[in-house]
Design a protein around this nucleic acid. Structure first.
Lengths: 211, 211
DNA sequence: ACGAGAATTGACCGCTTGGTCAAATCTATC
DNA sequence: GATAGATTTGACCAAGCGGTCAATTCTCGT
């Protein structure tokens, strides 16, 4: 579960990380568009501007590359999740969390799509993360929300379904971006439109849960 | 845009529709799991229990089969959408619509997943549907909601982002079923759990929008 | 029972896939 | 400038892909 394994030799070279990064970003875009199975190493190499054989020098298999991409996404997800904990007040915690998830969907739609595609195919690679890290995160935040319910700070509800609504709504703006584009005259949401969508998501969700 | 083209000869045979149906259902499951590109005609034929060459007798290409599957999904989507119009009262209309979308996600998760996968890859096949039929549907329901807002029957908001929340939340239960399973101890939601999730979705969305 | 068209299927084709490999080249240290 | 290791790459391979085809079998109206 190491997210950024330190290089065996610190001064390996300046060019190496750069080339790895290029392949990594190319892989993200291809995996997001085509899914794991649909993605081809030839296309990834083409976008990175290197011969396919060179890709296999840095990442021995397509799955190794995919796993590297995946780990970063899980790490970003957890970073956004931490904004739920920065304030003990329900209204503040929920607002901050929804805002952070909306911002993440806007900043890294590819990551969200790779996640969605991974779940659609049965989550073979991240199943362990879902069953351990994510399940633990959810359980402890459910406990927090149960306390809020007991204190009548929020309406009584099943916290996990509430989190599903937050995840679904925020990630929708990344995963279904092409549908949103088609419904927006062919253009992606402008920054103003997105800010409005974000404010409304926070608002509606808060109104939905505050007593 | 013909959804169910009538057979050229009515009494073609009883077995034909049955075999087509078998291939159709096998295709649905493979497309839902693997996406269009990841799905193989060999696997579809295997699940349907027929030789691959026989599949190509009924559906000349993989894309023809995919398009047939897709059309049914769009038709089902529109059928569920009609429940928004069965009542002029905002509370009733929204409740009925969310309920119908939740029921559809439960009854046909494969359809929802194929839709999601199609959007993720850029919606090449249903783009036309999104830009015409779906955009028209959305525009006219936005007009209805604007009237509700003017009459102060619901809070002021941008109706389209409200619909995105409904779509995202309801379809999440189909598209992310494997994630929900992992967070539910490995088991899919029981009927009771799902009914609770459905009631809460309706409730939270209504509270989010009613003044 | 027979003929014609519908349906079935094993074998096959050209192409793409993920991955390999050996030869060539580059880089850094002494 | 020699040498050892890191890096680069064209050529290649076995497996899998969507789709074709000709030969066969089935079905049914007459």
């Amino acid at each position: 579960m190491t997210l950024t394994p330190p290089p065996q030799r610190p001064a390996r070279s300046a060019g190496r990380e750069l080339k790895e990064k290029g392949l990594f970003e190319a892989a993200r875009s291809v995996f997001a568009e085509e899914g794991f199975k649909g993605a081809t190493t030839a296309e990834i190499a083409r976008r990175a501007g290197v011969p396919k054989a060179n890709l296999h020098y840095y990442f021995p298999t397509k799955e190794a590359l995919y796993r590297a991409v995946t780990e970063e996404i899980l790490s970003d997800w957890l970073a956004a999740a931490s904004s739920f904990d920065k304030n003990g007040d329900p209204k503040e915690a929920i607002s901050a969390y929804v805002a952070a998830k909306m911002d993440l969907a806007r900043a890294d739609p590819l990551g969200s799509r790779i996640w969605a595609s991974e779940i659609l195919r049965g989550a073979p690679v991240i199943k362990d993360f879902l069953e351990t890290t994510l399940a633990d995160w959810l359980a402890s935040r459910e406990a927090i929300m149960q306390r809020w319910i007991a204190a009548e700070k929020i309406r009584p509800l099943e916290p996990r379904y509430f989190f599903y609504m937050i995840w679904a709504t925020t990630q929708h703006y990344a995963d279904f971006e092409d549908q949103i584009k088609a419904l927006n005259g062919g253009a992606p949401l402008s920054d103003e439109q997105f800010q409005k969508a974000k404010a409304q998501a926070i608002d509606t969700i808060l109104n939905g849960v505050m007593p």
